Computed example of a mutant assay.
Amino acid sequence: MSDKVCSHHKNKRRKSVFRCCACLLVSIFLILLIVLLTWAILKPKKPRFTLQDATIFTLNVSAPNVISTSVQVTINSHNPNSRIGIYYDKMYVYATYSNQQITFFTVIPPVYQGHKDFNVWSPFVYGSNVPFAPYNGIALSQVQSNGAPIEMTIKIDGRLKWKVGSFTTGRYHIHVACPVSVPLGNSKSTGIVVGNGVKYQISQRCSVSV
């Protein structure tokens, strides 16, 4: 008789555990479904970045494998979403030449960007005596001596979070690449002398991946 009672209690417990698990799974499914439907209705768009200008203070290959760079850039960021805000975590700005990093990282502090809002940043990116691939150093020296435009890329790496109402998502990686073409040494240069630097109006749309 006692064996039957124990078996009955075990079955009851199993049913209770099964019901709890089923309710939990259904709740999770409904929550995910609501989030996905909301996301599909809102159709979030990636932020848009534009490189407005670049002021070149230093761009010097002191040896085939050593480069020193000092550049100030103005970057415009726009949130095109009307119902979604964006939290930017720390973002790191740096410059590359021929896919090689030529400056240290400059940090843009965390900031919230509201619906349809704009943010403008003007970070300095610089690097003193940065190791450089010799073939890139020779190529850059030749470009400078010929007066041809120097092709660089200003990059931003960081993380962002989307905000819908009171709901905030997890972090997503964001990668921004802004091409820069500056005619240093060219007699037809359109740059404006600003103190010890030369400022170039760029107005170049950047590529963004999230």
Rank of each mutant, 00 (worst) to 15 (best):
Y94A: 03
Y94T: 02
A95Q: 07
A95C: 06
Y97I: 09
S98T: 08
S98Y: 05
N99R: 14
N99H: 10
N99P: 00
I102G: 01
I102W: 00
I102P: 00
I102Y: 01
T103P: 03
F104S: 12
F105M: 09
T106Q: 14
T106G: 06
V107K: 13
I108V: 12
I108Y: 01
I108S: 09
I108F: 01
P109G: 13
P110S: 14
P110R: 13
Y112E: 10
Y112C: 00
Q113P: 04
Q113R: 08
Q113M: 15
Q113Y: 04
G114V: 09
H115T: 14
H115A: 15
K116H: 08
K116A: 12
D117K: 14
D117E: 15
D117P: 05
D117N: 15
D117G: 13
F118L: 09
F118S: 04
F118R: 07
F118W: 12
N119W: 02
W121K: 07
S122Y: 10
P123A: 09
F124T: 12
F124C: 06
V125T: 08
V125A: 03
Y126C: 14
G127W: 02
G127C: 06
S128L: 09
S128V: 12
P131D: 06
P131E: 06
F132Q: 04
F132S: 05
F132V: 08
A133T: 07
A133P: 01
A133V: 04
A133C: 02
Y135I: 05
Y135A: 09
G137H: 01
G137D: 02
I138D: 10
A139F: 03
A139Y: 01
A139Q: 06
L140H: 01
L140T: 01
L140N: 00
S141D: 04
Q142A: 15
V143W: 00
V143G: 00
Q144P: 02
Q144D: 10
Q144R: 11
S145T: 08
N146I: 00
N146K: 12
G147Q: 06
A148S: 15
P149V: 01
E151Y: 10
